[in-house]
Design a protein around this nucleic acid. Structure first.
Lengths: 202, 202
DNA sequence: AACTTGATGGTACGGTCGTATCACAAAGAG
DNA sequence: CTCTTTGTGATACGACCGTACCATCAAGTT
């Protein structure tokens, strides 16, 4: 046998190449040859590790979601040791706003995938429901904790506010992406609503 | 000269064919030939009335925005004669949620356009800023009127709430589109926030 | 040493896409 | 009646795309 290469590692490299070029030129414009060139390998290798383009896209989406999850987790950790629910919530919301190149790419590519998934049944809706639902559950639980700790009004509905904040974050993110709004004003808007929620207790 | 055909009319027919097929199979999958078949004309005619695909897309986007504007206006009118700001606001928000086939297509195609516009400088960012900005101004003005009429808290910030509601509506709309959420719960969420805003006055 | 097998490169095939070209019919203008 | 112009059809071209096929090299195995 030859070199014995770690398939998982190689697949990750190629998937990240896919995300990079998708972030630059849009997911719709990404071909197998572009991915190969970006990853510095031959077209054949992309075929070798992902037999078909559809599998490449699917793996790319999973990898994107995973990397984004790690990014959010890192931001939350950076919010300090033993941060309160509010700090965690703010970190969580801010992390998903397009600010630097990475989060901008994330937003763009994720939205592209979503659009594709609506019409293409092959790109299972799975990842588009599981991950957002997980974020929703997490945020709901954080708000519930805040309410129990008396940091919010007693009649706060955690899930309602969680869904609202995430929907707002997504909508604002799109606005930033198309250049309608800048990141700072979007962040200020989100903080305004966090302020609103964290009022009435204390 | 031959038949002397109304160009504007024909362009509209073709643009609507574009929107129909884009709504079914996704904007990324739409070719000139698909549009021609959907409109019941030959490929050549599509080329004749829109020289290039890019111009076809651009005109399609403008037509989409226009039709959507009319739709919202109709919904607002249907809210009754001399409706209060609140009824108008609710009608405005609900109309832009994907409920029937038309609004679902609108959301999908508009999002597709937005994704394309991020990377393709030819698809001018114009329509993606002008129209949302107009909606934002309209909603801001409605909220300001409501505040002046004492229907809301006196310290309400009209523009902040307008942007928030529209961003939420967009985010929720995407959620509905990908099947994460159903239309009724999204509508209920929006109404919840309208309720929140229209409180404290009276 | 011969063989097997995983990793890789090169390249060709069939299809589709946007666009361009050529041809022609029909309807007024002179 | 001829001529010009507008609308319409058919088809061809060149590019690109995803996929498939074939060859080759390297590293163990027997």
């Amino acid at each position: 046998m030859p070199k014995r290469v770690d398939h998982g590692e190689r697949r990750t490299e190629i998937a990240e190449a896919l995300l990079r070029v998708a972030g630059r030129r849009g997911l719709h414009a990404v071909g197998m040859r572009d991915v190969a060139a970006e990853a510095g390998v031959s077209l054949r290798l992309v075929q070798y590790y992902f037999e078909t383009k559809e599998k490449l896209l699917l793996h790319g989406l999973e990898h994107l979601a995973e990397r984004f999850g790690e990014r959010v987790a890192a931001r939350v950790r950076a919010a300090g040791d033993a941060p309160g629910p509010r700090a965690v919530i703010e970190a969580l919301l801010m992390a998903s706003l397009p600010s630097d190149e990475e989060s901008r790419t994330f937003h763009l590519v994720y939205t592209s995938y979503a659009v594709l998934a609506v019409t293409d049944p092959a790109l299972a809706a799975q990842p588009f429901i599981r991950n957002p639902d997980a974020a929703e559950d997490t945020l709901t639980e954080l708000l519930r904790q805040a309410r129990e700790a008396g940091l919010t009004q007693a009649d706060l509905e955690p899930r309602v506010e969680a869904i609202s904040l995430l929907a707002m974050s997504a909508g604002l993110g799109t606005g930033v992406l198309v250049g309608q709004r800048d990141t700072r004003s979007a962040a200020a808007l989100l903080r305004h609503h966090v302020d609103r929620i964290f009022t009435g207790g204390e």
